Computed example of a mutant assay.
Amino acid sequence: MTNWTIDQGHSSIGFSVKHMMVSKVKGSFDAYTANVEADDLADLTTASIGFKLDVASINTRSEDRDNHLKSPDFFDVESFPAILFESTSITKQGDSYAVTGNLTIKDVTKEVTFETEYNGKGTNPWGQEVYGFEAEAKINREAFGLTWNAALETGGVLVGKDIKIHVELELNKAA
């Protein structure tokens, strides 16, 4: 197996959630690490994938909202500083892949499947092979203990239940 590293400058892990039932809040985790091992990234079924997200790095472009998300109302970063993902199976589905694994948020682990697109392979200006992938999954935040909410006077709630997770990766061989 070959170890692969994430090019942090060309990768991102983000999310979106409904806000006030009328718009979306988008955010990202700016600090994360990954373990990706594979015989050949052109065939992702040979891979083993693991991620560790630093919850304190959450960034929604609002300091007050980010601080609330880090609080015990949501992620409780003091008690649960990381979000973890470990793949358990990867299957090819036409031109894409289903990357299934265990997602752990606040000591709650649930199986999640990321629909993953292989964007191709290239060679960077330094002669390294580079592989690109995009992945998406949808989770119910309440299933992971993220249950805080507020009712709106006009009906509905402040924060939606469904979180869309979006991952964009550029990978190259570890040095």
Rank of each mutant, 00 (worst) to 15 (best):
G27S: 08
L41C: 09
K24P: 00
T45N: 02
G9Y: 00
L41R: 07
F29Q: 06
Y32D: 02
S12M: 08
F29E: 05
M20F: 14
H10V: 05
K26E: 11
D43H: 06
K26R: 13
F15E: 07
D30T: 11
M20S: 12
V25T: 14
A47I: 01
T33D: 13
V25S: 02
A38I: 02
A34I: 02
H19K: 06
V25Y: 01
S23A: 14
D7A: 12
T45S: 10
L41D: 05
G14S: 11
S12K: 11
D40Q: 02
V25L: 04
T5R: 14
E37I: 12
N35T: 14
S12H: 08
F29C: 07
V36R: 08
K18Y: 03
V22A: 08
D7V: 14
K24C: 01
Q8M: 14
G14R: 09
G14A: 10
A31R: 14
Q8Y: 03
I6M: 11
T5I: 12
K18H: 08
D40N: 14
I13P: 12
D7F: 10
V22L: 11
G14H: 08
V36Q: 09
S12I: 00
A38H: 04
S16K: 15
E37M: 10
G9V: 02
A38R: 01
N35K: 13
V22I: 15
G27M: 03
F29N: 08
A38K: 04
K18I: 07
S23H: 01
S28L: 01
G14M: 03
A34Y: 06
D43G: 08
T33K: 11
K26I: 05
L41H: 07
Q8C: 00
D30G: 01
A31C: 02
F29P: 04
S28Q: 10
V17H: 07
K24A: 12
G27L: 01
Y32P: 04
T46L: 05
G27Y: 04
D43T: 09
V17I: 15
M20L: 15
Q8K: 15
S28V: 03
L41Q: 04
Y32I: 01
D43N: 14
D40P: 05
D7P: 09
S28R: 13
F15D: 05
V17F: 03
I13L: 13
G9D: 04
V25M: 01
K26G: 12
G9P: 00
T45W: 03
H10I: 10
G9A: 12
H19N: 11
I13T: 10
A31G: 07
T5Y: 00
V22C: 01
M20E: 04
F15V: 04
